[in-house]
Design a protein around this nucleic acid. Structure first.
Length: 244
DNA sequence: AAGAGTTTCAACCGCAGTTCG
DNA sequence: ACGAACTGCGGTTGAAACTCT
């Protein structure tokens, strides 16, 4: 018998995959990603699952554009810490390191371009010197700090004024909760991540199998004396559409 | 209207640190 | 103590969306 190692799925996540991942993270918590990847049958790497969770599915993530306050903070903290994106992200609740990194890169491109343009007349193009970048950022942070237009706005006020609607993952969670039936693992209460206690982490494969069997999600077959078990494919679940 | 150029965002990769057996 | 497996981080890439000409 030739065992062909199945290729891992790559690229964008589908809504069903998201829901599927959410179910399993709620079950097992935000750790053991390889394990979650395996038992979920998503055919994704643990790394990929973690990334999707951290950057997109995690409850409490903010959506939408960064507020001036957040932008200012990013610039300030970057001038302090450099490219320590995760560290900076910890100071901005609801924002991911990836988001901050992306913002910073876009910001730098923009300022570099602007400076290039404005300095082309003065013949001095300091923006081409990469060592200038942190200084530029610091200067920018200072500019933002002293700009009264944005420094006095709260995030909510900013959203109101700009008509920016940032929404949190809570809304999505609510939708998931309302479509409880669609996910056999889904408890009815909103996500309380602390509830994933040590006991859950220490669950072994046999326990997991027992647990899943009760949910009719797992099918056992004796493969030539080697007992294997596999989860039903994601598309076998009847997920109701979450958002359009 | 359409094509080119730019921006944004999600995802992948490689590496380093940590944990576990 | 050591190696394998796992996890987290930072850099990079590419597709889609958007803007400009």
């Amino acid at each position: 018998m030739v065992m062909v190692k199945e290729e891992m799925r790559k690229g964008s996540w589908t809504e069903q995959e998201d829901l599927h991942l959410v179910c399993f993270v709620r079950l097992f918590g935000e750790r053991r990603w390889d394990f979650i990847a395996k038992v979920s049958g998503l055919n994704r790497t643990g790394k990929s699952c973690r990334l999707r969770w951290v950057n997109y599915l995690h409850p409490g993530l903010k959506r939408g554009r960064m507020t001036p306050q957040e932008k200012r903070l990013v610039l300030e903290l970057h001038s302090l810490w450099g490219n320590r994106w995760s560290r900076i992200a910890r100071k901005l609740p609801g924002r991911t390191d990836n988001e901050i990194k992306n913002y910073w890169r876009a910001h730098m491109r923009k300022t570099t371009k602007e400076r290039k343009r404005s300095s082309s007349s003065s013949r001095v193009d300091r923006s081409l010197d990469p060592t200038e970048l942190p200084l530029q950022a610091a200067a920018e942070a200072h500019d933002l700090r002293s700009s009264s237009a944005c420094s006095c706005l709260t995030a909510e006020e900013f959203e109101k004024e700009e008509g920016v609607s940032s929404y949190s993952m809570d809304q999505i969670w609510n939708e998931i909760a309302t479509s409880e039936d669609s996910c056999p693992f889904m408890p009815s209460s909103p996500p309380t991540w602390e509830c994933c206690s040590e006991a859950v982490w220490k669950i072994d494969d046999e326990e997991l199998r027992m647990l899943l069997q009760t949910d009719h999600l797992i099918s056992d077959h004796n493969d030539g004396g080697r007992e294997t078990c596999s989860l039903a494919q994601p598309d076998q679940y009847s997920f109701s559409p979450m958002c359009s």
